[in-house]
Simulated assay, not measured.
Amino acid sequence: MVQSKHLQYTYEIAPVFVLMEEVVLKKLRAFIGWECGDGIFCPGGSMSNMYAMNVARYKLFPEIKKCGLWEMPRLAVFTSEECHYSVTKGAAFQGLGTDNVYLVKADQRGKMIPEELEKQISAAKSKGAVPFLVSATAGTTVFGAFDPLPEIADICENYGIWLHVDAAWGGSALVSRKHRDLLTGIERADSVAWNPHKMLLAGLQCSAFLLKDNTDLLKSCHAANASYLFQQDKFYNVCYDTGDKSLQCGRKVDCLKLWLMWKAIGTRGLEERVDRAFACTRYFVNEMKKRECFRLLMEPEYVNVCFWYIPPSLRGKEQSSDFWQNLGKVAPFIKERMMKRGSMMVGYQHHGTKVNFFRQVLISPQVSREDINFFVDEIERLGSDFQPE
């Protein structure tokens, strides 16, 4: 009855799903470049990043599980200013405090600057803080940027700091022989977050937290040893009772979604899905470059395409004092029209000093060149008569 609901916490409740999860996690770790390790499927990339924070802290100060924060020094986390918001949310949730998350400057493409990371670590140490975690990003939310992992790994190794890579978005490039170089150096990480429900299009939710450590660190950190579930004198190997690795008790069998898809289309099919997303992105960018009305914020490194549409009323006026103020009104103007017309739905945002721009991500295997052509044409149709106030 319980297994029919797709729940797992002990081997006897869901033996097939326990083994399935073990196999899938092993395959994902192999893409990273780890021969061994550990991991667990958990509810989303945000939770994976929080798991990393908790495990890294426990690794450095295992007594925190019993004594709590009272006996701990001030702990410091380091991440890019382009990081996912779950890093600061995790620091708040786990009692570290958002003031102890050091946001490291990123370059114009949104990549963490290693020299700035080292400066922040030194600054934190000078204030008496203990650096314990660097959370690098492989595929930032806005620009799709990949932090320079080899250089960051060198710094973490030099200072003895846990390196976590938030590859929730960009991790799926690992399955592509053509594009996996974007994540060069990820094998040096201590932990990785990877969401197959993003680019690989597994059913939501399907998120893996992966560890290089294979010494039961994950279980030691989280285990409560409930005697009514996790008896140590069972007739089978109790390492298959994976429930104590988790913050939850019963978990949904999220690995099943990826396993089924993997069996259906194979590793080659997953790779083709990734490669096609990159090819669609390149076609989209090339089509925009043919028209004077589009301007890219930057050449995309991944499949995030950030751009402005410049209507006829603003073209050639880039030097005017109110150009950028007026350009910032164009995306909301077009978005309102597309929603009322019901033709498309695409998001816009401002970012730092950059006024509102569109951010389009092309990952669906159902998107055709005809769809892309329609998208470009529709943006033009909806915005061509914009007039500044």
Score class of each variant (00 low, 15 high):
D154I: 12
K263C: 10
A208C: 02
K252D: 13
L296E: 08
V192E: 00
E157M: 13
G383Q: 04
G170H: 13
R295C: 12
E81M: 05
E299S: 14
L19V: 01
S80P: 06
V238Q: 11
K89T: 11
P114C: 13
R359M: 03
T281M: 05
G250I: 05
Q232R: 10
A145K: 06
V24M: 09
P332E: 09
D154L: 14
I310S: 03
Q232H: 09
M261N: 14
P311H: 09
E71F: 08
V87E: 08
L96H: 09
F284H: 00
C249L: 15
G352L: 10
N158C: 06
V23S: 09
P73T: 10
C221F: 00
G352M: 12
V142M: 09
C239A: 15
Q108W: 12
P131W: 01
N237P: 04
C239L: 13
E81S: 11
K65V: 07
G37L: 00
M345E: 14
F357I: 08
K59T: 11
I64R: 14
Y85I: 15
C42A: 01
T98V: 00
M112S: 11
V355E: 11
D181W: 10
A76S: 09
A124N: 09
Q232T: 04
A123N: 05
L69N: 12
E116Q: 15
G328R: 01
N54L: 04
E380R: 09
M53S: 04
K27P: 12
L270V: 07
G347S: 15
T184K: 14
L218I: 10
N304I: 11
S364M: 05
D99W: 03
E370L: 03
A277L: 04
Q349G: 14
M298R: 15
S364Q: 05
I334Y: 05
K111W: 08
P388M: 14
G110W: 03
M288K: 07
K290P: 03
V367P: 08
L327I: 03
D377K: 08
Y51H: 12
C293S: 12
C280E: 03
G383P: 01
L217K: 00
I372Y: 01
F78R: 10
R29G: 01
I379Q: 14
L174T: 02
C42R: 00
C306H: 10
M53N: 03
W34I: 05
S126G: 05
Y159S: 03
P365S: 00
L327M: 07
V134F: 02
A279K: 05
L163M: 06
E187C: 07
F230D: 02
L382Y: 14
E151I: 13
H84Y: 14
R369H: 12
S368M: 13
R341F: 15
L260T: 08
S343Q: 08
R295W: 07
K59M: 07
S135V: 10
N373Q: 06
C293L: 07
P148T: 09
I152P: 05
L296S: 12
E63W: 03
V101Y: 13
E35D: 15
Q108M: 13
H84G: 14
H197T: 10
P114M: 03
T242D: 02
G328T: 01
E336P: 09
L133I: 02
N195S: 08
I161G: 00
E63P: 06
L211Q: 12
E81H: 10
N237S: 13
S80D: 14
A106L: 04
E81A: 07
E35R: 04
Q360P: 02
Q319F: 06
M1A: 03
L7V: 01
T215A: 07
Y58K: 07
M53D: 01
E157A: 15
